[in-house]
Structures are given as structure tokens and as C-alpha cells.
């Protein structure tokens, strides 16, 4: 049931969405603007003369004021035209359309692995709170939190690829060239990112689960004689997953950030790698395009997370204050 309150909340959030995406793209435009050697210098190289740079700047429209260029870009972006790369003259929208699915696949596989590891681990750590298992899992997670993702990645490359030869050390296989090969080429980068996310998810679920397990309805379930598995998975997991769901949403931004490094490490042609290359090459429109996609995606995900609350917690669904 969607009441007027829910509708109002949805409308407010959509307005926030628009405001945030607008502000984020304006901010990127300003940040890329302070890049010292602009695109004209980057394209022509250090040997170009002043006149050559000047004429290319005019050709690319870089001599117009910042506000005009942003307004121009924004009105084009609203019609789906994100401009062309200064470098390759490719349409940014085409580049993103090619690369976004790769990053989305990477992130989905990452989330599956991360949750597949963290949910059971969190449940066990909460159920056996302060036991040896709990401390061991806590130790593993603090260790993983202390390691940068690219070092986890290098460690996995060394063990699973160089020493054991199970997975390719880098490179990407398109799904059209074989689904199995594609999954194999995605596994190490996804596992790397998943191991970096694992401690965050596990610790959150553990903390919420411990709180849930102290509530009366768990006592009731226990008194009814339900089995441990039924209580943990059937009764306690859903009310304990509120923070987890929020953080999964917030973490998507972090994951895209992680993907920037991991895609570079494993030579995966996603939008993270596109962004790094665009930054190296001062390709403003490419940077703008990626930021637009990431910011929009981030806000949409948060909207979805907010709606997921309603499914997880009846109090939110019925607009009752707890």
C-alpha cells in the first residue's frame, strides 16, 4: 500500500536526485577545469607551438567561458549526447555503453561473492559471539581491512595465477567469446573486490544480528522449539539486514572507486579504467560522462535502498515511527 506520505517521500527523493546529479556534474566540470595543461596541450604534446594550441582550443571550443561550456554540455547531456572524446573522437555515450556492462558485471559478481561469504560468516559470528570462530573471523576481517585492494589483488594473482595457474593474471574475455572464459577472467578481480568488502558486511551483519538475537520474538521462537537454523535464517536474518542493505547501497560508490584500481590492475575494460585513462589524458568529456553515470547510478541505488527498507521493516512501510 502506498500512502500519500510514501508518494511525497518518493517525490522529494527524485528532486534530491536531480539536484545531486546537477551539483556533481557541475563540480566535476569545475575540477577538470583546473587541470593545468588542458585537452589541447594533452593532444598536441609538449612540442606544440602556442599558435597551434590556440587554434585547437578554438576548434574544441575551449576558449569559451566555463559557464557557457557547462550549459552547453548539460543541454546536450539531457538529449543523451555526452560529447566526443578529445582523443579518439569517439562518442562518449558509445564508450560508456561498451564499458558500463563490464563494470556492472564485475560489481554484481563482487556483491554475490562478498555476500556469499559475509552473510554466513556474520550469522555464525553473531550466534557464536565471543567464541573462537568469532575471534578468528574478526581477525580475518581486520586483516583484510588493513590491506589495500590492489595488494589483495596482487596476492591473489601470485597464489592463484602465477603459482597455481588456475586463472589468467590479467585481461578480459568478452561474454560473446565464451561465457566460461568470461567468468574466469572476471573471477580474480571480483574476488579481490569482494574480499575488500567482506569485513564491512560481515561486521555490520554481526552487530545487528547480536542485537536482534536478544529480542523477545527470538525467545518466543526458541520457546516454540524451532531449530537453530530456522531461528537464525528464518527469523533473525531479515530484521538484522537493515544496516547491511543501506551499506550495500552506499558501498556501490566505494565499489566503483575500487573498480578504478582493480580494473587497472587486471586490465579489465570497464568505466573505471576509462576514467583513469581519461584523467591521464585530460579527456574532459570522458571524465564528465563517467561521473554523470556514476553519480546518477549512486543516487538511484540509494532510492532503491530506501524502498527496500519498506520491504524489510514493516514499521517503515506503514509510516510508523519506531
Amino acid at each position: 500500500m502506498i500512502g500519500s506520505q510514501a508518494a511525497r517521500r518518493l517525490r522529494n527523493q527524485l528532486l534530491t536526485l536531480v539536484a545531486i546529479v546537477f551539483a556533481a556534474t557541475a563540480l566535476t566540470f569545475a575540477v577538470t577545469e583546473i587541470l593545468p595543461g588542458d585537452a589541447a596541450v594533452a593532444i598536441l604534446g609538449d612540442t606544440a607551438t602556442e599558435a597551434e594550441i590556440k587554434s585547437l582550443r578554438t576548434e574544441l571550443g575551449l576558449d569559451r567561458p566555463l559557464i557557457v561550456r557547462y550549459a552547453d554540455w548539460l543541454s546536450n547531456a539531457l538529449t543523451g549526447d555526452l560529447g566526443r572524446s578529445y582523443r579518439t573522437r569517439e562518442h562518449i555515450s558509445t564508450m560508456i555503453a561498451q564499458r558500463l556492462p563490464v563494470t556492472i558485471e564485475l560489481i554484481i559478481i563482487t556483491q554475490i561473492i562478498a555476500l556469499g561469504l559475509a552473510v554466513p560468516a556474520g550469522i555464525i559470528a553473531a550466534y557464536r559471539n565471543r567464541s573462537g570462530v568469532d575471534h578468528a573471523l574478526g581477525g580475518v576481517s581486520i586483516g583484510l581491512l588493513s590491506t589495500p585492494a590492489f595488494v589483495i589483488g596482487i596476492g591473489l594473482i601470485y597464489t592463484l595465477s602465477v603459482a597455481l595457474g588456475w586463472f589468467p593474471a590479467s585481461g578480459y574475455v568478452r561474454p560473446s567469446d565464451g561465457v566460461l572464459g568470461n567468468l574466469q577472467s572476471m573471477f580474480l578481480p571480483a574476488l579481490t573486490l569482494a574480499l575488500a568488502e567482506f569485513p564491512v558486511y560481515m561486521r555490520l551483519l554481526r552487530a545487528d544480528m547480536i542485537a536482534t538475537l536478544q529480542q523477545d520474538f527470538i525467545l518466543v521462537a526458541r520457546a516454540k522449539g524451532l531449530g537453530v537454523r530456522d531461528i537464525l535464517v528464518g527469523h533473525a536474518l531479515r530484521p538484522s539486514s537493515l544496516s547491511l542493505v543501506t551499506v550495500i547501497g552506499i558501498n556501490l560508490g566505494r565499489l566503483v572507486g575500487g573498480a578504478v584500481i582493480i580494473e587497472t590492475l587486471f586490465a579489465i575494460p570497464g568505466i573505471g579504467q576509462m576514467l583513469v585513462n581519461a584523467v591521464y589524458q585530460h579527456d574532459h568529456f570522458a571524465i564528465q560522462g563517467v561521473v554523470l553515470v556514476v553519480a546518477t547510478g549512486f543516487v538511484l541505488i540509494n532510492l532503491a535502498v530506501d524502498m527496500a527498507y519498506a520491504l524489510l521493516d514493516p514499521r517503515v512501510r506503514h509510516g510508523v515511527d519506531s
Binding site: I20, P36, G253, V260, Y280, V291, V294
Partner: peptide
């Protein structure tokens, strides 16, 4: 909130590459 919308490392990359 706007600042949080940027994956942190991306903002840092953009800033460092512009400032040197």
C-alpha cells in the same frame, strides 16, 4: 551529500591529477 556522491578515490584522482 554531493561530495559523498563521488567515490572518494575518484575525487582524489581528479584533484591530484589537476594539482600535480
Amino acid at each position: 551529500t554531493v561530495l559523498l556522491c563521488f567515490p572518494g578515490i575518484i575525487l582524489a584522482i581528479a584533484l591530484v591529477s589537476s594539482l600535480g
